[in-house]
């Protein structure tokens, strides 16, 4: 019995050793022939109208087989006029710095296509493509076909996408000032003073104020015009400014596109869709920099996130950036 066990164990060890010791010969990998290409998307986060979608498109063929003569990108929806394909190829030097080399003439947009014709004798290049998201793409999907041609007649192409284009809008760095530009319109994505607020009364959703009141903490506040006068001390509302927006206070939701800080947080269309404003108050007081507020307009037409980029107690000012989503 014991002998049988020893034999079985020995046999297993031998089989394992035999399998492990099989010699696999190494050979240098052969370089690919012909024209090849690859592509990566460089931008992160929601694709908002007016921002760009950035790609890096690489193409190469062995030197002996020819040179690249052109590169082209075709988008399913034509980009905004500022859309372009770099005519410079970037390589990273030893210090980690991207060094450009001009390889072709500036890109030309023609309908949905953007093309660069190469002027330099090169068999490898990486071009960056900046698709400026047009208004027509809002709420739709967009995809891209990158392609390159070589002097030997070869062509290659690479599909990217589809990518969802957000329905939301974005406005950065609106300066609010106590008793001056203190009226916020979510519908207009704008800030008004008391004179202009009166002419846009139907669209005023929030009032900004800064108060230092002994014994309580009030400071910077965003208050709906229809809120209790307790939260609008010393404010005389322009005629017709009487809406009641709903407001949720938020802390540390530092959306990267609004804050432009190091945090990898992005507010997308879905976040607005899933918000629940039941029981939300109509004011937010004691606000700080890097805080924010979710807002729903009185008519429920828009939801927005107001991020507070900066506050200034001396000047009684607040700098905000807004993302707004149309609910209807």
């Amino acid at each position: 019995m014991q002998l049988k066990h020893y034999s079985l164990t020995l046999l297993t060890i031998l089989v394992v050793f035999f399998t492990a010791c099989q010699d696999e010969e190494y050979s240098l990998p052969a370089a690919k022939t012909g024209l090849n290409n690859d592509c990566i998307k460089r931008t992160l986060g929601p694709n908002v109208v007016g921002l760009n979608l950035e790609f890096a498109y690489a193409m190469a063929l062995p030197k002996a087989e020819g040179k690249i003569i052109s590169a082209q990108v075709e988008a399913s929806i034509a980009g905004a006029p500022a859309t372009y394909l770099e005519n410079r190829s970037f390589s990273t030097n030893g210090s980690g710095v991207d060094v450009p080399v001009i390889v072709g003439s500036p890109s030309v947009n023609s309908g949905t296509k953007t093309e660069v014709v190469f002027t330099r004798d090169t068999c490898a290049a990486t071009l960056r493509y900046f698709y400026i998201i047009p208004e027509e793409a809002r709420g739709k999907t967009v995809k891209f076909t990158f392609s390159a041609k070589a002097s030997n007649g070869q062509t290659v192409s690479y599909e990217m996408g589809p990518y969802n284009i957000a329905k939301m809008d974005m406005k950065l760095d609106l300066l609010l000032s106590d008793n001056n530009n203190s009226y916020i319109s979510i519908a207009d994505m704008a800030v008004y003073n008391s004179a202009t607020a009166a002419t846009n009364a139907a669209n005023i959703d929030l009032v900004y104020l800064y108060r230092v009141i002994t014994g309580i903490t009030f400071t910077h506040a965003l208050v709906a015009p229809a809120s209790s006068p307790d939260y609008l001390p010393g404010v005389t509302l322009p005629s017709g400014v009487n809406k009641s927006a709903k407001v949720w206070k938020v802390w540390a939701l530092r959306d990267q596109q609004l804050a432009r800080l190091q945090y990898g947080i992005f507010i997308d269309d879905l976040d607005f869709q899933q918000l629940n404003f039941t029981g939300a108050p109509d004011y937010a007081i004691n606000l700080r920099a890097e805080a924010g507020t979710w807002v729903e307009t009185a008519d429920g037409k828009y939801r927005a996130y107001i991020y507070i980029n900066k506050i200034d107690n001396t000047k009684k000012e607040m700098t905000i950036s807004i993302k707004r989503y149309p609910m209807q």
Partner: peptide, 9 residues
């Protein structure tokens, strides 16, 4: 609690 605290939530 602070003045203006939304005690419903």
């Amino acid at each position: 609690v602070f003045y203006g605290t939304d005690l419903k939530n």
